[in-house]
């Protein structure tokens, strides 16, 4: 794609978080190849990527809507749905798998009613499965709200979640 420079344009609303997105785009010179970086920033600011954000970013960087959408849906880190108040990531990498990560996922399904990729009905916890967190020595590993917990059994995991 030709690096067409597209000028800054008014943010969709006066929500302050758009400033973070704007700053990131300006630093990247509004180049279309900065798309993924800007999507990261938008997701950090808003928690997820909605249509409005995708349209706005695409317009500013000169990337067609279908391409923005194609990129946002290709990478599993990006989410197009609002997430729960808390996130619980179960690592399902090989070391965790052979050390019982499957039982953790099943336990969450049974107790919270949320499969990986889903949020509990009360919007409290989003359950996610990660490929490998690189915390294999502490398998099985779980990340709750950014905090890594190692050698986690089903009981302990539920304990951690109850304390939230």
């Amino acid at each position: 794609m030709a690096p067409t420079t597209v000028a800054a344009r008014p943010a969709p609303s006066d929500d302050k978080r758009w400033r973070q997105v704007d700053v990131r785009m300006r630093r990247l010179g509004y180049r279309p190849d900065g798309l993924i970086e800007v999507l990261h920033t938008a997701q950090e600011a808003f928690g997820y990527l909605d249509d409005e954000a995708l349209h706005y970013i695409g317009d500013c960087l000169g990337v067609p809507p279908s391409m923005v959408y194609g990129v946002a849906t290709f990478y599993s880190h990006f989410t197009l749905e609002p997430q729960g108040e808390h996130t619980c990531v179960v690592c399902t990498g090989t070391a965790c798998y052979i050390n019982g990560a499957g039982a953790l996922v099943k336990e969450l399904e049974a107790r919270l009613g949320a499969h990986p990729g889903e949020t509990t009905a009360d919007g409290k916890v989003s359950v996610l499965a990660a490929r490998c967190l690189g915390a294999c020595s502490m398998a099985p590993a779980v990340v709750v709200d950014g905090e890594v917990y190692g050698k986690v059994g089903p009981e302990r995991l539920l304990g951690i979640l109850e304390e939230l």
């Binding site: 180049r31 279309p32 190849d33 900065g34 798309l35 993924i36 970086e37 999507l39 990261h40 990337v63 391409m67 194609g70 990129v71 290709f74 990478y75 599993s76 880190h77 990006f78 490929r131």
Partner: peptide, 25 residues
Amino acid sequence: VRIGAGAFVCGEETALLASIQGGRG
């Protein structure tokens, strides 16, 4: 630094380049 976004295939060099250029990996 360019941060990936959760796609194993981006370890493949041509997919990685596509991702650095902001596209689908």
